[in-house]
Amino acid sequence: MLEQMNDQSRAPSSNALSSGAWLKTYYYLRFAVSAAWVAAAFTVAKSSPPVAAIMLVAYPAWDALANYVDARRTGGLGRNTSQLLNFVVSIITAIAIAIALGHSMNAVLSAYGVWAVVSGALQLVTAARRWKTNGAQWAMILSGAQSALAGLFFVKMAGGTEIIGIANIAPYAAFGAFYFLVSAIWLSVGDARRKSTRAVS
């Protein structure tokens, strides 16, 4: 009986550690993919419309996949409503961008703008929910808020006369990469400190 109680008391801690380890990996992966996307946007895609078109559709599609996998690894889609919604919104956005590419880059930027507002708000909700269990979510909250603001700017810009290309969207992805890296490092430093404290005690 005592052993069962000990096992039960250790389970939440074990789950928390597992969740924290996954979250670090997840944030580092999101940073790496976003950074690679930004680099390609400013180099290869800038002078190749077909590559730019593929990348513009792939970015929200990747976000959908990432949210789906993350939700599955942290309790399932049923327990992560904000990520489920983000998954659906990102899939719809990828389809909308594929259609908008047949019209104009202004239409593409409008789609990105709406997506940035909605996905940013949902990311903020996800980060706020995770604060209690994982901590170090302030960067993700800032990222969600900034995403929403950037989305409003995109929508306004899409209504103007400026020539728009993938390079206009790349800074948005760059800021996202930065916040993912900050969150990953913050979690890593926190883990290192806790291990050091346990070793000393």
Rank of each mutant, 00 (worst) to 15 (best):
L122Q: 00
E162N: 01
A45H: 14
L181E: 00
F42S: 01
T25Q: 14
A53R: 14
A66E: 07
F153L: 07
R198W: 06
F87V: 07
P171H: 11
A107M: 13
A45K: 08
N80V: 10
W37C: 05
F154W: 00
I169W: 07
E3S: 15
A170K: 05
A11S: 07
A184I: 04
S90G: 00
Y28L: 14
T43Q: 14
V117A: 15
A52C: 02
A96S: 06
L142W: 10
N15T: 08
V118K: 01
A158F: 05
V117G: 04
A158Y: 08
V189L: 15
G151Q: 12
Y172P: 01
R73D: 09
R73I: 03
V155W: 09
S34D: 07
N86W: 11
A61W: 06
W115M: 08
S47L: 03
Q8P: 03
Q137H: 07
P60Y: 07
K195A: 05
W37A: 12
P49V: 02
R194Y: 11
F42P: 00
N86A: 11
R198A: 13
L142M: 14
L77K: 01
A174V: 03
L56T: 02
R194D: 06
D70A: 14
G20R: 11
D191E: 08
S183T: 05
N106G: 14
A98S: 10
I166A: 12
M1C: 09
Y68T: 02
M157Y: 04
A107L: 15
A170P: 07
A71W: 09
A36I: 12
A98F: 15
N134H: 06
A145T: 10
I169T: 00
F180S: 11
I169D: 05
F87W: 13
Y28R: 13
V57K: 03
I95V: 11
N80T: 10
G144V: 03
K132L: 12
A199F: 13
T161E: 08
Y172K: 03
N168G: 04
S183P: 00
L101F: 06
T197P: 12
S9M: 15
T25K: 14
L149H: 13
A98W: 14
K156T: 02
R130W: 07
A107E: 06
Q146L: 08
V200K: 15
A71V: 13
A170L: 01
G113A: 04
A36E: 01
L77N: 02
A98L: 09
Q123C: 04
A170T: 02
A107V: 12
A64L: 01
V108E: 01
A174M: 05
V69L: 15
K156W: 08
A127F: 03
S14M: 09
L29Y: 10
G76A: 00
I54M: 02
V108Q: 06
P50T: 01
L124I: 01
S188W: 04
A107I: 11
Y172R: 05
V117C: 02
A150S: 11
G159M: 14
Q83S: 13
Q137D: 10
Y68A: 12
T74A: 01
A158S: 15
V88I: 00
F178V: 02
N106F: 04
